[in-house]
Design a protein around this nucleic acid. Sequence first.
DNA 1: GCAAGGTC
Length: 740
Amino acid sequence: MHLIIAEKHIAAKRIAAILAPKKPKQVRVSGMDTYEFKDEDRTVVMGLSGHIVQLDFPKAYNNWQKVESKELIDADVITTPTHVKIVNALKKLGKEATHVTIATDYDREGELIGVEALEIIKKVNPEVDFDRVFYSAITKKEIDDAFANPAAIDFNLADAGHSRQVIDLVWGASLTRYLSISAGRLGKLFLSVGRVQSPTLALIVDKEKERQAFIPKPYWEIYATLRDKSGELFNVQHKTQKFWDRGEAQKVMDIIGDNATVSSVVRSKKKDKPPTPFNTTEFIGAASSIGYSAANAMRIAESLYTSGFISYPRTDNTVYPESIDLRAQIEVFKKGTFKEYAEKLLAKDKLVPTRGKKETTDHPPIYPASLAKKNELNDQEWKLYELVVRRFFATFAEEAEWETLKVRFDIEGEEFKANGARLLHAGWRWYYPYNAPQDRLLPALEEGDVLSIKSKEMLDKETQPPGRYGQGRLIKLMEELGLGTKATRHDIISKLYSRAYVHGNPLQPTKTAFAVVEALEKYAPTITKHDMTSQLEEDMDRIAEGNIQEENVLNESRKMLHDVFAEFDENTEKISESLRAGLREDKVIGICKECGSKLMVRRSKRGSRFIGCDGYPDCNFSLPLPKSGQVIVTDKVCEEHGINHIKIINPGKRPWDLGCPQCNFIEWKKTQEEEKRKQPETPRPEKITDVPGIGKVTAKKLEDAGVSTVDELEEVNARELSKNTGISVGKIMKWQEAIA
DNA sequence: GCAAGGTC
């Protein structure tokens, strides 16, 4: 039997459909759908799900407290299955196979994924014969060609990928553990470190530092509003766009009189090239500019892809491969919403698409694979589908053409100017109307015209700090620096959010992020730089070319990591202190109005959270907090209460902007009162057990703490009582609410 | 409970 292994189920299904003389038979093997047909031999095509095994340390290393972080450096690295069903199917089919063809994706990880599968088969069928096919798109032409010319598996390339896995695991796991333990952040709140996430976080922190160090510089702008013959008003600006000296600006202001003379009019044409085909990064960038987060854009793209509406969304390629019949692909849209656009393109004799800078073998650029109707998709899906369709069309369209107008004016010897632009020929912008620049129209003017000045204005401005990274921009920067891959960059960013290293979009780092990056930069600089990835890429290339053994690269890397831990060992206390200081800063939400101490996120003995005053026990000011989720203190300050707004993040959920915790509490109390008013008047409880939520057992506890009447419960300090009884502050406050 | 890389 001939067994063909593809990287994913859908690829297996499509490859089978192309190779089979008749419709292939769908057969369940160990719970997996496989595709069987008779060619020269019985042939079975099955799909994996990317990597089906994972590297890890043996179980004995799992205990963070007992195993020292640095022991992970030289620990065994074992391979464990992550997709048991697929592994079982592989074994079952592998045993029967006489010949195996690896047909995974045409890139380094694909080679490794193929070898992982082969190794599983070899365990049950050591003598099996195997080869490898390469294709860049699943079209009949490419698949037929690939299978007519099978090649050998590139084991060196797979080794290169394997070395990356080992290095990522060993560095990431050991440093994550070390930092988390050093900072006392165990459990869900651990501090993660990794080859890709840490340099990315460092970029964000560096940008924030730049912003903090930025000193705004004042400058002035001068405008005059002119009236043309027909009475139309328009603005002109002094040719010195930024006056750094107020006096100079004022001098110009003072001499502006009643008239302006047109001193020159220059008309010219400007062309605007159509965009290049979408790869993942470009797609996320475009989606991001119309309001999608990177992770959301990819999630939706994935569902459009699995429904067959767009091609594979994870690709580096920006050049359509020749094997795709592009005209046929446009013809798909002769019906439906995009009819007029498709027809206009199809009217061209020749369809020449643009080409991006990156041409790779992995997959084609993202293009619309089939026609979708608006009611088949939800709103979010439709907008992204439309984006892909329009982008695809735009890559075949002509340049856009603008007429630009530069007009200069003389006002009492000072030069002023106005620029206009008008779209003459929309070209590709008709197909792809996103972020189109607006026309800036100027009245018809000729040299020598004299216009009256209606008003003049001097604007006070100041230079702005560099902006924070938005997700789209960050992903582009990561790509430029070689950080992460098309399939992982958005995940890495999501990870930074879920670790509470960043919040908001554009991304803003927390103090914890500052502390982590600073500690790493000082003692483990390698992991904070994108150079680590470039170095790794070089090493992987050498492994792939057969110029060095994987073992040598790993030894070298482990040696470097030992040096890092030697640094750690010499500075254990310093690192721990500076990390803890940073973590503490993230808990400060402002200054207590009652006593001037810090208001902080605190934890009661019983583990419940609240906002308490650092001046406790002298000051009892406190505010409640939600039970679960990480509290993030933002830089926004409440105008009324002078404390910072907070956000609550829960894994897998949207962050909850709680706002000012004091306003929130006041609001909450108000709704509580309203609720109470709506409900029939509940009499004030007489006995303590009449208070909702207090039973006999609790009443006994309260009595032991000296609270036995309703009045006493109402008067008692909630935090004090919580300390003595172990009952949460929140609960006690609720009872007190119920009494009052 | 640790990474990054696939895929769903």
